[in-house]
Computed example of a mutant assay.
Amino acid sequence: MASRPGPWTEEDFEATSTKACFDLRKYGEIGFANGIFSYVNNLPVKVDVYHRDRSWTALEYDGTIRPGGYSSDTSSVTWWGQYGAVCTGGATPSF
């Protein structure tokens, strides 16, 4: 998974767990401040994507990345995963 690019794009997050949630603010150079730009789901489970709401107190569901799903440009949804979380295998965020 890569955050939205500045002058370049680099891999900012990779997970191998099939049932866990990850706070994207802890990854990459700026904590996915601009959301998720591209992704590849090599896991055998779905990945749910969330962004942080305007109050910074809750996560809002954005969508699901199916097993084997990928995208090289999610720019049509600029807040997708912004300061948010990804949860694999149906796990629920609790942070």
Rank of each mutant, 00 (worst) to 15 (best):
M1C: 11
M1K: 10
M1T: 13
M1N: 09
S3Y: 00
R4E: 05
P5G: 15
P5S: 12
P5R: 11
P5T: 11
P5K: 08
G6P: 00
G6C: 02
P7T: 12
T9C: 04
D12C: 05
D12K: 03
D12P: 01
D12A: 10
F13R: 00
E14R: 12
A15L: 01
T16E: 06
S17R: 13
T18G: 05
T18P: 05
T18H: 05
T18C: 11
T18W: 04
K19T: 15
K19N: 15
A20H: 06
A20K: 10
A20R: 10
A20Q: 13
C21I: 13
F22V: 07
D23F: 07
D23L: 07
D23M: 04
D23N: 15
L24K: 05
L24R: 07
R25P: 00
R25S: 03
K26W: 02
K26Y: 02
Y27F: 15
Y27N: 01
E29L: 13
E29T: 14
I30K: 11
F32Y: 15
A33D: 15
A33W: 08
N34E: 10
G35M: 03
I36S: 03
I36C: 02
F37E: 15
S38Q: 14
Y39K: 01
Y39S: 01
V40F: 14
V40P: 02
V40T: 15
N41E: 07
N42D: 14
P44C: 03
V45R: 08
V45Q: 10
V45I: 11
K46I: 06
V47S: 03
D48L: 08
D48F: 04
D48C: 08
V49E: 03
V49M: 04
Y50T: 04
Y50G: 02
H51W: 08
H51R: 15
R52C: 02
R52P: 00
R52Y: 00
R52H: 00
D53N: 15
S55L: 14
S55E: 14
S55P: 07
S55G: 09
S55Y: 13
S55V: 13
S55N: 12
S55A: 14
W56D: 12
T57A: 10
T57S: 12
T57G: 13
A58C: 12
L59K: 05
Y61V: 02
Y61H: 12
G63H: 14
G63E: 10
I65P: 07
I65C: 07
P67F: 13
P67W: 08
P67N: 10
G68A: 11
Y70R: 14
S71E: 09
S72H: 09
S76W: 03
V77H: 13
V77S: 09
V77Q: 11
T78I: 09
T78D: 09
T78E: 05
W79N: 10
W79S: 13
W79K: 04
W80K: 10
W80M: 09
W80G: 04
W80T: 12
Q82Y: 06
A85G: 02
A85M: 02
A85C: 05
V86M: 03
C87A: 06
C87K: 03
G89K: 02
G89N: 03
G90N: 09
G90E: 11
G90H: 09
A91W: 08
A91Q: 12
A91F: 07
A91C: 05
A91L: 04
T92D: 00
T92Q: 05
P93N: 02
F95N: 04
F95S: 06
F95D: 05
